[in-house]
Design a protein around this nucleic acid. Sequence first.
DNA 1: CATGTAAATACAATCGATTGTATTTGAGCT
DNA 2: AGCTCAAATACAATCGATTGTATTTACATG
Lengths: 341, 341
Amino acid sequence: MKKGQITIHDIARHLSLDSSTISRALNDSPRVTAKTKEKVRKVASELGYRPNLMATGLRTQRSKTIGVIVPWISRHFFSSAISGIEQVVYKEGYHVIICQSHDNYKREVSNTFALFDNRVEGVLASVAMDTTKFDHLTQIKDENIPIVFFDRYPPGVSACRVVIDDFKAAYQVTEHLISQGHRRIAHFSGPRNLNIYRDRFDGYKKALKDHNLVMDPTMVFESRLLPDDGIEGIKYLLSLPDLPDALFCSNDLTALSAMQYLQKDGSFSVPDDMAIAGFSNSPSTSIIKPGLTTVDQSGEEIGKAAAKRLIAEIRGETDRGMNEVITIDTQLIVRGSSCRK
Amino acid sequence: MKKGQITIHDIARHLSLDSSTISRALNDSPRVTAKTKEKVRKVASELGYRPNLMATGLRTQRSKTIGVIVPWISRHFFSSAISGIEQVVYKEGYHVIICQSHDNYKREVSNTFALFDNRVEGVLASVAMDTTKFDHLTQIKDENIPIVFFDRYPPGVSACRVVIDDFKAAYQVTEHLISQGHRRIAHFSGPRNLNIYRDRFDGYKKALKDHNLVMDPTMVFESRLLPDDGIEGIKYLLSLPDLPDALFCSNDLTALSAMQYLQKDGSFSVPDDMAIAGFSNSPSTSIIKPGLTTVDQSGEEIGKAAAKRLIAEIRGETDRGMNEVITIDTQLIVRGSSCRK
DNA sequence: CATGTAAATACAATCGATTGTATTTGAGCT
DNA sequence: AGCTCAAATACAATCGATTGTATTTACATG
């Protein structure tokens, strides 16, 4: 019953050595003979010794843990990003504590504190839609915990971020729609307090302007971009006196649901009656017919870049600027949903 | 620079009290006056005190952490399961360390040790395709760390598991295909060392048998069920002298890629030339045209059930049997891909 | 053989919180 | 005032590992 875990003291007892020698032996310190190290390692593996990371972390003040906050784990972009993060930090001997905010401010705050309580050595975060106050994030910085944002970042928090050029990508999408002959281009936007949706909106506007089209604010529908919002949005557009001939959605989720809604009774054709484009290149976009034009944004690559940068900051190798912006390339993926036959 | 974290000792100094009193005050012990508790809480929040979970964990031997091992975070089923897990454990004051095995045995082993090193209080695992030895998992059990498997479980490890009835679900799918008039039903199977693929295969065979159809082993294609395997599988089937008239795939990934391959030049019609069914009800199955018949298997529900059960075991509330099998309901989702017009 | 010196190892404090035991405080009573 | 007794708080050990300092060991040298 008294089945405690094996500690360095147990090894020490077996070898009539002091626990400090065991510790040094296991950490390959030059202060211990090769012969002793050998003996220690042998006994350690015989006893099935495994270090207690809580003890090590407490003593060394390094938890070997990094915290990740994302809105939704199960969104393809974020789970890919986490996958990328995990691959990078795993190699460096770190592990990852994952929290999801459900796009909710209060949960994001409590996640942030939970990560701090665990004394994570760094944080990777993509902020929630609801987040408009950022004290919890600045506090993390103030505690000297490096934080790197990816995809969604808060204004005014001085930190590095890994992003894509949302403005440019949205510009390209819009320009592509224009090049296909569309003139009345609608837009589904997300909450403008988030950089990504603001930038995508701005890119859309700029493209229209550069091609001498006037942006019609009645054709811009703002929502939280959940699947149902796509349906609500397309219903709204269909109720307009002058129908748009194209639609650029700020994410794939709404593009897909809007497109399915349009196609469901066969009376409406995509792209002939309305061209559609989305954003993120999530798996379903290549499966829907016609394929959904979208922007490829590799979650995995973004996650990897953010993790690498964070580890560099943890190590104090911040050679590049403190608030560096790392931009990952995107690619416009043109598929049938936007192409005039 | 010397910006150490705030500890209970700092609070103690501020109030000329002992740190033990602070600890008891913050833990609402009856041994401290209400008045003192009030003062302690006030100073604690003024100083921005946050408990160090490594210290607490070391002392109490309870890390408030549970470990999760999945093959791939970014697979919809698993990210949904993680989402469910996270929701449950979060409420109980636990957090989650996530590892992915990439369906690789060695990584799964090293993940397992990493979780042990962190002294997780419990483990939720879905084993890798490559895993045929299970010592690492039995060791965890032997260390008295509760482990609950979900979806994929190893044979011979005595532990609770949360699963679906793969046999029954596969039987239903096959029977449905038969009811649609299909007689030559092919099957894409996964590695048979995994319960889920073995059971799905068995359910398929039993349904055929019960309907007086003979299973033709040349129509069973075994692979690791990645998208490319679906293409390879369908090419193989197309090369057979007698084409199958239906195909039941052990996962959606291969069903989708096979279906897209068949449809790509328009010469082949699904379901008329070949009916197809998949397994898992991943998002794309409702987007492809025709919709893919599949089995709904709620990752979130499975994750929640597994997490609840694990927490019960951690708490020692194992009223139900030690090796209980919790079966989550599935639902056959019939869509166009399998229905005779 | 005594001694100096470097190598090898032991001792002890520490990280931050918890907890069993010991001590102090103060109210109530004679 | 002296005393009791319970309430409130202080003391000190502990969790497992690390690390600066002290001590022992062993070998070489005069």
